[in-house]
Protein backbone atom coordinates (compact mmCIF):
# COMPACT_ATOMS: atom_id res chain seq x y z
CA UNK A 1 0.00 0.00 0.00
CA UNK A 2 1.06 3.54 -0.72
CA UNK A 3 0.99 4.71 2.86
CA UNK A 4 3.28 1.92 4.10
CA UNK A 5 5.65 2.90 1.39
CA UNK A 6 5.73 6.50 2.63
CA UNK A 7 6.15 5.47 6.24
CA UNK A 8 9.07 3.19 5.43
CA UNK A 9 10.60 5.79 3.16
CA UNK A 10 10.42 8.50 5.81
CA UNK A 11 11.14 6.17 8.73
CA UNK A 12 14.12 8.19 9.95
CA UNK A 13 12.27 11.47 9.79
CA UNK A 14 9.20 10.07 11.52
CA UNK A 15 11.41 8.72 14.30
CA UNK A 16 12.94 12.17 14.75
CA UNK A 17 9.44 13.64 14.96
CA UNK A 18 8.27 11.05 17.50
CA UNK A 19 11.39 11.58 19.60
CA UNK A 20 10.95 15.33 19.66
CA UNK A 21 7.26 15.00 20.57
CA UNK A 22 8.18 12.83 23.54
CA UNK A 23 11.03 15.08 24.65
CA UNK A 24 9.00 18.29 24.44
CA UNK A 25 5.81 16.99 26.05
CA UNK A 26 7.67 14.77 28.54
CA UNK A 27 9.93 17.56 29.74
CA UNK A 28 7.03 20.01 29.91
CA UNK A 29 5.04 17.51 31.99
CA UNK A 30 8.04 16.97 34.26
CA UNK A 31 8.51 20.71 34.89
CA UNK A 32 4.78 21.18 35.35
CA UNK A 33 4.70 18.37 37.90
CA UNK A 34 7.61 19.91 39.81
CA UNK A 35 5.62 23.13 40.10
CA UNK A 36 2.14 21.68 40.40
CA UNK A 37 2.74 18.98 43.00
CA UNK A 38 3.90 21.28 45.85
CA UNK A 39 1.51 24.03 44.76
CA UNK A 40 -1.46 21.69 44.54
CA UNK A 41 -0.62 20.03 47.86
CA UNK A 42 -0.45 23.35 49.69
CA UNK A 43 -3.64 24.67 48.14
CA UNK A 44 -5.33 21.35 48.86
CA UNK A 45 -4.34 21.15 52.50
CA UNK A 46 -3.93 24.66 53.78
CA UNK A 47 -6.51 27.29 54.44
CA UNK A 48 -5.13 30.74 53.81
CA UNK A 49 -6.28 34.14 52.67
CA UNK A 50 -6.89 34.19 48.93
CA UNK A 51 -7.00 30.40 48.62
CA UNK A 52 -10.36 30.42 46.88
CA UNK A 53 -9.21 33.14 44.50
CA UNK A 54 -6.06 31.18 43.59
CA UNK A 55 -8.14 28.07 43.11
CA UNK A 56 -10.49 29.95 40.82
CA UNK A 57 -7.56 31.26 38.79
CA UNK A 58 -6.10 27.77 38.52
CA UNK A 59 -9.39 26.33 37.30
CA UNK A 60 -9.78 29.20 34.83
CA UNK A 61 -6.32 28.55 33.44
CA UNK A 62 -7.19 24.90 32.97
CA UNK A 63 -9.25 26.16 30.06
CA UNK A 64 -6.36 28.18 28.61
CA UNK A 65 -6.54 27.70 24.83
CA UNK A 66 -3.23 26.28 23.56
CA UNK A 67 -3.02 28.82 20.79
CA UNK A 68 -3.40 31.67 23.30
CA UNK A 69 -0.65 30.23 25.49
CA UNK A 70 1.45 30.01 22.33
CA UNK A 71 0.72 33.59 21.34
CA UNK A 72 1.65 34.94 24.78
CA UNK A 73 4.92 33.01 24.82
CA UNK A 74 5.59 34.07 21.23
CA UNK A 75 5.18 37.76 22.00
CA UNK A 76 7.40 37.52 25.08
CA UNK A 77 10.21 35.76 23.23
CA UNK A 78 9.87 37.57 19.89
CA UNK A 79 12.94 39.63 18.96
CA UNK A 80 10.72 42.65 19.46
CA UNK A 81 9.52 41.34 22.84
CA UNK A 82 11.01 41.67 26.33
CA UNK A 83 13.01 38.42 26.22
CA UNK A 84 13.85 38.57 22.51
CA UNK A 85 17.61 38.57 22.95
CA UNK A 86 17.50 35.07 24.39
CA UNK A 87 16.89 33.88 20.81
CA UNK A 88 14.62 31.07 21.93
CA UNK A 89 11.87 31.42 19.35
CA UNK A 90 11.48 28.38 17.05
CA UNK A 91 13.49 26.06 19.29
CA UNK A 92 12.36 22.98 21.25
CA UNK A 93 13.10 24.93 24.46
CA UNK A 94 10.37 27.47 23.82
CA UNK A 95 7.94 24.66 22.94
CA UNK A 96 8.63 23.20 26.37
CA UNK A 97 8.03 26.60 27.97
CA UNK A 98 4.70 27.03 26.19
CA UNK A 99 3.49 23.54 27.08
CA UNK A 100 4.61 23.95 30.69
CA UNK A 101 2.48 27.09 30.87
CA UNK A 102 -0.40 25.11 29.45
CA UNK A 103 -0.09 21.98 31.57
CA UNK A 104 0.85 23.36 35.01
CA UNK A 105 -2.66 24.67 35.84
CA UNK A 106 -4.19 21.36 34.75
CA UNK A 107 -2.00 19.23 36.98
CA UNK A 108 -2.29 21.73 39.84
CA UNK A 109 -6.07 21.76 39.67
CA UNK A 110 -6.30 17.98 39.57
CA UNK A 111 -3.79 17.54 42.39
CA UNK A 112 -5.82 19.92 44.55
CA UNK A 113 -8.89 17.84 43.84
CA UNK A 114 -6.99 14.62 44.55
CA UNK A 115 -5.79 15.87 47.91
CA UNK A 116 -8.41 18.28 49.20
CA UNK A 117 -11.13 15.75 49.99
CA UNK A 118 -10.46 12.98 52.40
CA UNK A 119 -6.70 13.41 52.50
CA UNK A 120 -7.01 16.30 54.94
CA UNK A 121 -7.81 13.71 57.59
CA UNK A 122 -4.62 11.84 56.79
CA UNK A 123 -2.66 15.07 57.12
CA UNK A 124 -4.11 15.80 60.56
CA UNK A 125 -3.61 12.20 61.53
CA UNK A 126 0.05 12.22 60.50
CA UNK A 127 0.60 15.42 62.46
CA UNK A 128 -1.04 13.98 65.55
CA UNK A 129 1.20 10.92 65.29
CA UNK A 130 4.19 13.21 65.63
CA UNK A 131 5.14 13.78 62.01
CA UNK A 132 6.54 17.20 61.18
CA UNK A 133 4.86 19.24 58.48
CA UNK A 134 7.12 18.02 55.64
CA UNK A 135 6.58 14.41 56.61
CA UNK A 136 2.85 14.98 56.79
CA UNK A 137 2.83 16.41 53.26
CA UNK A 138 4.68 13.40 51.94
CA UNK A 139 2.30 11.03 53.69
CA UNK A 140 -0.62 12.71 51.98
CA UNK A 141 1.04 12.66 48.55
CA UNK A 142 1.85 9.00 49.05
CA UNK A 143 -1.72 8.17 49.96
CA UNK A 144 -3.14 10.13 47.03
CA UNK A 145 -0.59 8.88 44.54
CA UNK A 146 -3.07 7.06 42.31
CA UNK A 147 -5.04 10.21 41.68
CA UNK A 148 -1.86 12.23 41.37
CA UNK A 149 -0.50 9.91 38.72
CA UNK A 150 -3.79 10.24 36.88
CA UNK A 151 -3.41 14.04 37.09
CA UNK A 152 0.08 13.89 35.64
CA UNK A 153 -1.06 11.59 32.85
CA UNK A 154 -3.89 13.99 32.04
CA UNK A 155 -1.34 16.78 31.81
CA UNK A 156 0.91 14.73 29.58
CA UNK A 157 -2.02 13.85 27.34
CA UNK A 158 -2.90 17.49 26.96
CA UNK A 159 0.69 18.42 26.06
CA UNK A 160 1.17 15.50 23.71
CA UNK A 161 -2.05 16.17 21.83
CA UNK A 162 -2.04 19.95 21.54
CA UNK A 163 -1.04 21.66 18.33
CA UNK A 164 -1.85 25.37 18.69
CA UNK A 165 1.01 26.35 20.98
CA UNK A 166 3.81 24.31 19.45
CA UNK A 167 2.82 25.32 15.93
CA UNK A 168 3.06 29.01 16.80
CA UNK A 169 6.21 29.10 18.92
CA UNK A 170 7.99 26.16 17.27
CA UNK A 171 7.08 26.94 13.69
CA UNK A 172 6.89 23.31 12.52
CA UNK A 173 10.48 23.43 11.23
CA UNK A 174 11.59 20.21 9.56
CA UNK A 175 14.13 18.24 11.64
CA UNK A 176 14.07 20.92 14.37
CA UNK A 177 10.67 21.70 15.80
CA UNK A 178 8.30 19.45 13.89
CA UNK A 179 6.28 17.24 16.23
CA UNK A 180 3.52 14.69 15.60
CA UNK A 181 0.61 17.09 15.91
CA UNK A 182 2.11 19.79 13.71
CA UNK A 183 2.99 17.22 11.04
CA UNK A 184 -0.60 16.00 11.07
CA UNK A 185 -1.78 19.55 10.40
CA UNK A 186 0.75 19.96 7.62
CA UNK A 187 -0.04 16.65 5.93
CA UNK A 188 -3.75 17.43 6.07
CA UNK A 189 -3.17 20.86 4.57
CA UNK A 190 -1.34 19.19 1.70
CA UNK A 191 -4.14 16.71 1.09
CA UNK A 192 -2.11 13.72 2.34
CA UNK A 193 -4.97 12.41 4.44
CA UNK A 194 -3.63 8.86 4.71
CA UNK A 195 -0.36 10.13 6.11
CA UNK A 196 -2.24 12.36 8.56
CA UNK A 197 -4.19 9.38 9.86
CA UNK A 198 -1.04 7.25 10.04
CA UNK A 199 0.77 9.86 12.13
CA UNK A 200 -2.31 10.18 14.33
CA UNK A 201 -2.28 6.44 14.95
CA UNK A 202 1.41 6.59 15.83
CA UNK A 203 0.57 9.30 18.36
CA UNK A 204 -2.15 7.17 19.92
CA UNK A 205 0.05 4.08 20.03
CA UNK A 206 2.79 5.98 21.83
CA UNK A 207 0.24 7.42 24.23
CA UNK A 208 -0.92 3.86 24.89
CA UNK A 209 2.65 2.72 25.50
CA UNK A 210 3.33 5.55 27.94
CA UNK A 211 0.20 4.89 29.96
CA UNK A 212 0.94 1.16 30.00
CA UNK A 213 4.39 1.91 31.37
CA UNK A 214 2.94 4.09 34.09
CA UNK A 215 0.07 1.81 35.09
CA UNK A 216 2.32 -1.23 35.13
CA UNK A 217 4.14 0.30 38.05
CA UNK A 218 1.15 1.21 40.08
CA UNK A 219 -0.83 -1.63 41.60
CA UNK A 220 -3.50 0.73 42.91
CA UNK A 221 -5.05 0.90 39.47
CA UNK A 222 -5.65 -2.82 39.42
CA UNK A 223 -8.79 -3.81 41.23
CA UNK A 224 -7.45 -6.67 43.32
Amino acid sequence: MDIWHSIVEYKEEILTIVRLSLIVSGTATLFSTLIALPLGTIIGLKDFLGRRLILRIVYTLMALPPVLAGLIVYLIFSRSGPLGNLELLFTPTIMIIAQTLLVTPIITGLVVAAIAGKEGIIYDHALSLGANQMQAYFTVIKEARTNIIASIMTGFGRAFAEVGAVMLVGGNIRYTTRVLTTSIVMETRQGNFAMGIALGLILLIISFAVSTLVLMNNDQFSKT
Binding site: G26, L30, N217
Partner: peptide, 15 residues
Protein backbone atom coordinates in the same frame (compact mmCIF):
# COMPACT_ATOMS: atom_id res chain seq x y z
CA UNK B 1 6.86 5.17 48.27
CA UNK B 2 9.44 3.16 46.37
CA UNK B 3 6.94 2.33 43.68
CA UNK B 4 6.15 5.96 42.93
CA UNK B 5 9.79 6.94 42.80
CA UNK B 6 10.55 3.96 40.63
CA UNK B 7 7.95 5.11 38.11
CA UNK B 8 9.40 8.60 38.10
CA UNK B 9 12.94 7.25 37.81
CA UNK B 10 11.91 5.03 34.92
CA UNK B 11 10.30 7.93 33.09
CA UNK B 12 13.39 10.06 33.68
CA UNK B 13 15.66 7.37 32.29
CA UNK B 14 13.50 6.92 29.22
CA UNK B 15 13.46 10.67 28.66
Amino acid sequence: NNKLSRVILLLLIVL
